[in-house]
Design a binder for these strands. Structure first.
Lengths: 197, 197
DNA sequence: CTTATCTCGTATATTCCCGTACGAGATAGG
DNA sequence: CCTATCTCGTACGGGAATATACGAGATAAG
C-alpha cells in the first residue's frame, strides 16, 4: 500500500475510511444492508460511495478485508506463550467481540464473494487459533478426541452466539467475557477423568 | 358468491406436502430462497404454489409449523427420565439434525413473521430442552455457573454448526452424532474439579 | 490562483422478485 | 361421465435495489 497512487486527495481517503467503517458496522448486523443505508451511515452521498466502490461486491470485500486485518492485528498482539488455557483466555478476553464481528461479516460475504476468495482472505485467522489448539493438545490440557477443525469452528460458533445474545441485550457486557471463556474452556478442556459412560 | 365447502382433493394434499417439504429443505439453507426455487424443488409450477399459499409469509409459516411439529413429536418420543446426561445423549442422537433444522428455519422466519407469532409457535420446543437442563442441574450433573438460557442457546449453536459442517462434507455422517454428543456434554457438564485458575 | 480531483443531486436503465389476473387443460371423485 | 377441483403457463404491474449517465459546485494540492 505504499507510494505512488498518482493522485488521491486526503478527503477521498477520509471518505473511504468512513464508508468501510460504516459497512463493517451495518453488514455485521444485517447481511442485506442497503448501499443507501451504508452511504447514509457513513455520512456521504450514494454517488460518492459508487465513486470508490464500483460494485456491491467490492464494498463487501473491502469491509471484510478491513475487519480481518484488524483481527490479525489483535491476534498478533496477544501473548500466546505459556499455558495454552491461559493463552486462550487472554485471546478471548481481548478479541471476542472482534472475532464475533468477523464471523458475522464472513457470513455476509458468503453469497456475494466467490468462495475461493473468501477462504483466501480468511486464511490466516483460523490457522492461528488452530495452532493454539494444537499446542494445548501437546501440553495435555486440551482434548484430543475431537478434530482440531471442529473445535476451532465451535469456538467461532460460540463467539458468534455470544455476540448475538449480547446485541439482543440478553447477556450483559460485563458478563460476556466470563461466559464466553467458561464455555470455550469447557469445550476444549481435556477430560479430567472419565466422567460418564 | 359461491359458498362452496373447502373440500380438498388428494392430489392437492400431495402438492402441499411436497411444497412444505421443499420449503423446509431450501429455507433451512438459504433464508432468502425464492418462491420460484421452492416451487421448482417441489416439482410444481409457481402458480400451483400460489394456489395454496397466498403470500410468502404463509409459506414460511407452514414450513416452520411443519418442522416444529416434527420436532415436538420427536422430543416427546424420547425418554427424558433418568440421568440427565443419558437423556441428553438420547435426545441428541435421535434428533440433532431436526433440531438444527428447526433453528435454521426459525432464523429464516425472523423478520418475515411477526415476533409474537414466532414465540407462540416456538413456545414448547425450547422450553423442553431448558427443562432437561434444569433437571440435570438438580441432579448435580450439569453446571450451575452459567445461565440456563445461555446453555440452551449454545446447544442450538453447536447443532447448527454441526449441520453446516455435515452438509459441507467436512464431517462424516457416522462421526457426527459422536462429535455433537461429546461437544454438548462438555459444555453442560458440571466441573468435576476446579481444573484451572 | 489554477486545476485536477472529489462530492453529490437528479434522472434513468436494469434486474429481480413478489403477487394478481386470466384462462386452458388435466384429473380426482361421486 | 360429469363437474368441481386442481395444475400450470403467459402476461402484467408494483416495488425495491443495483448501477450508470450527466453535470454543477466544493475543495484540496501544487
Amino acid at each position: 500500500m505504499t507510494s505512488t497512487r498518482p493522485r488521491r486527495r486526503a478527503d477521498a481517503e477520509r471518505s473511504i475510511a468512513r464508508i468501510t467503517a460504516a459497512a463493517r458496522d451495518l453488514l455485521s448486523r444485517d447481511p442485506d444492508a442497503t448501499i443507501d443505508a451504508i452511504a447514509e451511515a457513513a455520512g456521504v452521498g450514494r454517488m460518492t460511495l459508487y465513486g470508490h466502490f464500483k460494485t456491491r461486491a467490492d464494498l463487501v470485500e473491502a469491509a471484510l478485508v478491513a475487519v480481518l486485518e484488524a483481527g490479525e492485528a489483535t491476534l498478533s498482539a496477544v501473548d500466546l506463550s505459556g499455558d495454552a488455557r491461559d493463552a486462550l483466555s487472554r485471546l478471548l478476553a481481548s478479541s471476542w467481540e472482534l472475532v464475533a464481528e468477523s464471523a458475522a461479516l464472513l457470513a455476509s460475504a458468503q453469497g456475494v464473494l466467490p468462495a475461493g476468495r473468501i477462504r483466501e482472505l480468511h486464511g490466516g485467522a483460523g490457522d492461528r487459533v488452530a495452532e493454539l489448539v494444537r499446542r494445548g493438545r501437546d501440553q495435555g490440557v486440551f482434548r484430543t478426541d475431537l478434530p482440531v477443525d471442529w473445535l476451532v469452528n465451535v469456538v467461532q460458533y460460540v463467539l458468534h452466539g455470544a455476540a448475538e445474545e449480547h446485541r439482543g441485550g440478553r447477556i450483559a457486557t460485563a458478563d460476556a467475557a466470563r461466559i464466553v471463556d467458561a464455555t470455550v474452556q469447557s469445550v476444549l478442556a481435556a477430560p479430567s477423568h472419565n466422567p460418564h459412560t
